[in-house]
């Protein structure tokens, strides 16, 4: 194996249903329902997905949702802002844990 991530693996995602077909079926139906137009538009959901893809650092998801965002009519300005939102939450999430550090330090400090 020359690496863990390959673009040609993305279309093989459905192979995850080969040994758990019922779970895959339920996941697929739920996934489809999640991304259907509802209170949010398909475009807004795709932008959220793009941001989350960066937060979880999934190259498959980044590849797929970059394409989806473009196909939903988003432009690079909007997509870049979505990535910044995800990054700000990631960064903020780390930073806010600094309060735990402060609490822990306070507990053991005079």
């Amino acid at each position: 194996m020359d690496g863990y991530y390959h673009q040609h693996d993305l279309p093989r995602f459905a192979e995850m249903g080969h040994h758990a077909p019922e779970l895959w079926k339920r996941f697929s139906e739920w996934y489809g329902a999640v991304f259907a137009e509802g209170a949010l538009t398909e475009r807004e959901k795709a932008l959220i997905a793009l941001g989350v893809a960066h937060a979880v650092q999934c190259p498959y998801c980044i590849d797929a949702y970059t394409q989806v965002c473009l196909e939903k009519g988003s432009n690079l300005d909007q997509m870049t802002e979505a990535v910044h939102v995800a990054s700000a939450i990631r960064g903020g999430a780390s930073l806010v844990h600094g309060l735990q550090m402060r609490n822990a330090a306070a507990k053991v400090s005079m």
Binding site: T41, R43, Q67, L70, E71, K72, G73
Partner: peptide, 17 residues
């Protein structure tokens, strides 16, 4: 027309934009 190798968005949505 998409400015790359992807499909166009929903016509009604991009028309509104």
């Amino acid at each position: 027309n998409p400015a790359g190798a992807y499909l166009p968005p929903a016509q009604h949505a991009i028309e509104a934009d």
